[in-house]
Amino acid sequence: MNFFVVICLCIGFLFFLGGTVGIIRMPDFYTRLHPAGKLDTLGLFAMVSGLAAYNLHHFSLSTLLLSVKMMLIVFFVLHSIPTATQAIVDAGMRAGLSPFTRKKTSQLQGTGEE
């Protein structure tokens, strides 16, 4: 059991690490959002489920409910982080930030608003 928990936490930590490094390393605002939006979600998912599992150590109704509560966090975060990411990227678009492109003549097909 503990082994599973440790694995979960380590994986989650790894994702978080990736997300953080991504935020630092990525060249522009839009690309930075990718690690922030995805890796953090998954990292959080992994870690919280690990902790929820750890919580079921002493199994009882109350600990079960507690674990469900923790998963509730995951549920909400799964909704909220993509939405937040989308809101931020939309904001960047409207604010007129041009995305980083490798080829300068890249075919920009739209600016978000038609």
Partner: peptide
């Protein structure tokens, strides 16, 4: 840009949730 800061804060926020647990 401020949006970059916002990304940073968002990332900190998700880590904080775990940290609290």
């Amino acid at each position: 840009t401020i949006l970059d800061r916002l990304i940073g804060v968002n990332a900190i926020g998700s880590k904080t949730v775990v940290l609290l647990l």
